[in-house]
Design a protein around this nucleic acid. Structure first.
Length: 421
RNA sequence: GUGGGCGUAGCCGAGAGGUUUAAGGCGCCAGGUUGUGGCCCUGGAGAUCGAGGGUUCGAAUCCCUCCGCUCACCCCA
């Protein structure tokens, strides 16, 4: 038996209302903040990702879906959304648009990982990017937007964590200080951290190993090693967050897994202790556009995993809109009645009334049973008698009342019964 | 990549070497006389017991390998 590949899943009809709900919330939010939707290809030149996220990051080194097409082009399934958006910004000369350019996306992303709760090989992300401004007010706005997004749904208690990891000027100094601290230590960090010390020192800070925790706590803090410009920026971001009355915690051990981040980084996490999975996160990437071959252009963005949101949604109390069902089922008794039913169903649909009808030959009993289990509120029954009289028997499935209605006036009749959409 | 738990019909789930030609429930289909759902009753379809190999006279049940699911680590959304 063939199955969906590991780490992927089908989103069945009965799940769709969750997805639609979240996607509509996302679109509404973006409209509010002036973001427009962009769609980029599922696959890109592999170099786009290795250049932007950085060799040495786990995503690039061991999690990308890499393949060569028949033309021998090295391609990759997109593991995230920011780099493609930046590529599109450059490719379409969006620096000629009013800055910042605000774009959002709802995409699938691919990473070759061992699946677990809230983590898949193909997953869905909602993200937005504002490219072309380094105003700290924009940083605060992006965080507010993320916060509002979760706030529009019941996600339980959340917390907003922020940090600044500096820029190209000051980060090297900080990394050096960090390395100095760790190599001067008498205690040895965990084996993973010894590797990190060499390749990705920032990651030393968010090691979950018990003994590393205290080492990391005592480590130099990036916020203390910022250049004057970055320090001022970080201060201003916090001031704007206060202005917006967004509560946040500065977390000196918050770093992100991708190399392109500069200055502001942030994550939204469930406040419940023990909860591991970050709901969403983002940050500033002031060097990325340049790295991809453009003029120096600042940018900031945020992305969140839809599966994780839906996971939380299912545990919460957010009322979802009820699933949409057809309004009426046309039941028929006998071949001639069936012909009439087929025609009637067609007529209703052409006048925008959602209708279902019989396939094959089934008893009236079987037909009504189906109407019931599909949750369709009305049945229109056609039998010999109705055929003669040019009527249908309109049955209300909820209160079990039924009355003959002239065939011609059925659409009008149904329209008065239809819940206003 | 590492470690734990698990894999019996679409779903839930009994079953622990031999009356298993594998229970039961949900769901699906059909019937309970002639044109009516939700309750009840009856019947039916649907399983190479995750795959392959081995032990045994005999394996869903024991052993090995692989695959998958799941949780955690790593990492991240």
């Amino acid at each position: 038996m063939l199955k969906a590949p590991r780490g992927t899943s089908d989103i069945l009809p009965e799940e769709q209302h969750y997805w639609q709900f979240v996607e509509r919330k996302a679109a509404a939010l973006c409209q509010l903040y002036g973001y427009e939707r962009i769609e980029t290809p599922v696959f890109e030149d592999a170099a786009l990702f290795s250049r932007s996220m950085g060799d040495g990051t786990d995503i690039v080194d061991k999690e990308m879906y890499l393949f060569k097409d028949r033309g021998n082009n090295a391609l990759a399934l997109r593991p995230e959304g920011t780099a493609p958006v930046c590529r599109a910004y450059l490719e379409h000369g969006m620096h000629n648009r009013p800055q910042p350019v605000k774009l959002y996306y709802l995409i699938t992303a691919f990473r070759y990982e061992r699946p677990q709760a809230g983590r898949y090989r193909q997953h869905h992300q909602f993200g937005f990017e504002a490219i072309g401004s380094d105003d700290p007010a924009l940083d605060a706005e992006v965080m507010e937007m993320a916060w509002q997004f979760y706030g529009s749904m019941d996600m339980g208690e959340l917390s907003l964590l922020i940090n600044s990891i500096g820029c190209r000027q000051c980060r090297p100094d900080y990394v050096q200080a960090l390395r100095g601290y760790y190599s001067g230590l008498s205690a040895q960090p965990c084996p993973d951290c010894q590797v990190r010390l060499k390749h990705n020192p920032l990651r030393l800070l968010d090691c979950k190993d018990q003994s590393c925790q205290s080492l990391a706590e005592g480590a130099p803090r990036s916020a203390d090693h910022l250049c004057p410009a970055c320090a001022a920026h970080f201060q201003a971001v916090q001031a704007y967050l206060d202005l917006l009355e967004l509560s946040f915690q500065v977390n000196h051990r918050l770093v992100r897994g991708l190399d392109y981040y500069t200055r502001t980084v942030f994550e939204v996490q469930p406040a419940a202790e023990g909860a591991q999975s970050t709901l969403g996160g983002g940050g500033r990437y002031d060097g990325l556009i340049e790295e991809l071959g453009g003029r120096p252009t600042p940018g900031i963005g945020f992305a969140t995993g839809l599966e994780r949101i839906i996971l939380n949604l299912k545990q919460g109390t957010t009322p979802l809109p009820p699933p949409e069902r057809p309004l009426v089922y046309i039941a028929a008794i006998g071949p001639e009645a069936k012909r009439q039913a087929v025609r009637l169903a067609s007529r209703l649909r052409r006048s925008s009334l959602p209708a279902l009808t019989i396939y094959g030959e089934r008893s009236l009993k079987a037909q009504l049973k189906q109407v019931h289990s599909l949750g369709i509120p009305y049945a229109a029954i056609i039998g010999e008698e109705e055929l003669k009289g040019g009527t249908v028997l309109l049955r209300d499935m909820v209160n079990s009342e039924q009355k003959p209605v002239p065939l011609e006036s059925l659409p009008h009749h149904l329209r008065t019964l239809a819940p206003q959409a």
